[in-house]
Amino acid sequence: MKVLVLAKAPVAGRVKTRLGADVGLDRAADLAAAALLDTIAAGSAATDHRHLALDGDLAAAVRGDELREALAGWTITPQRGDGFAERLVNAHLDAGPGVVVQIGMDTPHASAADLRAAADALGGDDVVLGPALDGGWWVLVRRDVSAAAPLAEVEMSTPTTYDDTLAALRASGLRVVTTVALRDVDTVADADAVAALAPGTRFARAWVSAGATP
């Protein structure tokens, strides 16, 4: 099993802008960095085979030195493609063959156990898809790199992205099973809920230090 993380370098104004509208763009970037560090830690604990598809430059990122240190042993490639769906497909191509567990940086409460459980759910099927509470999805597990190709047809970051992704995968003949739903962090309400669920995470500590009380 390999973990594939798609992430943006946490630079103020480029990440968590919805949350930043309420807490400020600098604080939002710090929260994004904390969430990414939690995700990296989960991936590192889940497997020795880890790949980060990165949009941006960690040299300009909040907590850049800490992130680079945490990514020791990871393969890092730049995201490539015109839209997020195309970058997603290309990231799977770069990650290569075999069972890959793909997540983003919006679920800092996703643990190594959650990632391994998602991989175990694959069984004899082709894809595992985990819904997010906002209508998207938080994890995709695929057995073969070709299973990511249908993602290019799906509009991402909409209230129907999960349903549209599931339909596209099944229309291509893939056997798809689902796993547990998790909550993405996009808003203050999301941050409150996720920090309360996982108070020991870097994200929760950053949320509290930013003046919020989970």
Rank of each mutant, 00 (worst) to 15 (best):
K2S: 12
V3L: 02
L4R: 07
V5S: 07
A7E: 09
A7C: 10
A7R: 01
A9T: 07
A9K: 01
P10R: 00
A12R: 02
A12Y: 03
G13Q: 01
R14A: 00
R14F: 06
V15W: 07
T17N: 04
R18W: 02
L19A: 08
L19K: 04
D22V: 04
G24P: 05
G24F: 06
A28V: 13
A32C: 15
A34Q: 13
A34G: 12
A35N: 02
A42W: 07
G43S: 10
A45C: 14
A46D: 14
T47H: 08
H49D: 10
R50L: 10
L52M: 06
G56T: 15
D57S: 13
D57W: 14
A60G: 14
R63A: 15
R68N: 15
R68D: 15
A70Y: 09
L71W: 15
L71R: 03
A72P: 04
T75M: 13
T75K: 11
I76N: 02
I76G: 01
T77N: 09
P78A: 10
R80W: 06
D82L: 05
G83W: 07
G83E: 11
E86Q: 05
R87P: 01
L88H: 09
L88W: 15
N90W: 07
N90G: 06
A91Y: 08
L93Y: 15
L93V: 12
A95V: 10
V101E: 08
Q102H: 11
T107M: 00
A110S: 03
A110E: 06
S111M: 04
S111P: 03
A112D: 13
A113F: 06
D114Q: 09
R116E: 06
A118V: 00
D120L: 01
D120C: 02
D120F: 01
G123T: 02
G123W: 02
G124R: 08
D125G: 07
D126G: 11
G130V: 00
A132R: 00
G135H: 10
D144G: 03
S146Q: 05
S146G: 09
A147D: 09
V154G: 01
T158W: 08
P159Y: 01
T160Y: 06
T161A: 10
Y162W: 07
L166H: 04
A167F: 03
R170E: 12
L174W: 12
L174K: 02
R175C: 09
R175T: 15
R175Q: 13
V176L: 07
V176R: 10
V180A: 14
A181F: 11
R183A: 02
R183G: 03
T187G: 06
D190A: 10
A193G: 11
V194L: 07
A198K: 01
A198W: 09
G200S: 03
R202Q: 12
R202P: 12
R202H: 14
G211I: 03
P214Q: 08
